[in-house]
Design a protein around this nucleic acid. Structure first.
Lengths: 145, 145
DNA sequence: GCTAAGGCCTGTAGCGGCTACAGGGTCAAG
DNA sequence: CTTGACCCTGTAGCCGCTACAGGCCTTAGC
């Protein structure tokens, strides 16, 4: 079995994660430091690829790096239970729902504003007026970002 | 008429915008530099309040500071037409719709993952497996953020 | 007039999650 | 042995703030 390791460039391509991002993940402790060649090049193996895929996938699903660290701690400790992972997932799902609700409110307001606007070449504009005169939104647009 | 100006603290309270944020807006040119007292304190008037409300409202609607600068340039130049403002608004609306669509995709995936999970105290977890094994999402999660 | 408490000032550094350099060293093919 | 593609570290920048530190100003009460 010729399971020789591969370079950061190959890992980057395989996984679709920017090379500098991989180094960044290493620096902040999300990816483990790989072994090195005599000249100091990083050498990765299949486990690194698996882990980086996990991180990339989780990022795409909107988990923060901190949440990902939480997931990885569970995985690394081999001590996770479905319930723990499920809890993190449901928290995140709730957050996504909140964001969707917020954006739907925005969409409604924006669409109303745009509908007010004649689109003609006029110096008065309902949108500008709305932006100037409207009171604060009732619901918070972003809570604790 | 005793239309004396007011301090940054009062402006902050009136408008619901953090004091340091107001100074930041001044630094980056979104708010104009106000006049100053003998001792160097900022003195604001009703126009500043109006403009800051505009900025706050636009931020709440999700416009970036750069987009707001665009809107303000139109307003300041007295040269805006409804059509221009409407175009910016519709652009922004399209972006909001895209974000909502993205989040709905995420929601679906997350909900599926959570549904797979038994919630029992077990060392195998469908969510973890899904995070490890799943291919890249088809649609980009965030495009040019 | 004097003091103390509260406001305000500038400037800098930090957050998250990268990205983009600069200025080098290493590796493999020819 | 040379070339060129890759890789290394370290630092600075992006957005939209927020949070200090270490001062100066203002005002109310005595």
């Amino acid at each position: 079995m010729k399971a020789t390791g591969f370079s950061i460039g190959e890992l980057s391509k395989q996984c679709g994660v920017n090379l500098e991002t991989i180094r960044y993940y290493e620096k902040i402790g999300v990816m483990p430091a790989p072994s090195r060649s005599a000249g100091g090049y990083r050498i990765y193996d299949a486990d690194h690829l698996k882990r980086l895929s996990f991180v990339r996938r989780s990022r795409q699903l909107g988990f923060s790096l901190d949440e990902i660290r939480g997931l990885l701690r569970l995985v690394d400790g081999h001590a996770y239970t479905c319930a723990e992972v499920r809890a993190l997932t449901l928290d995140h799902l709730a957050e996504i729902r909140r964001k969707i609700a917020d954006l739907n409110r925005l969409k409604r307001v924006m669409a109303e504003m745009a509908a007010q606007c004649s689109g003609e070449r006029a110096p008065e504009c309902a949108i500008i007026d709305a932006l100037f005169d409207a009171p604060p939104l009732s619901g918070e647009t972003r809570r604790r970002p």
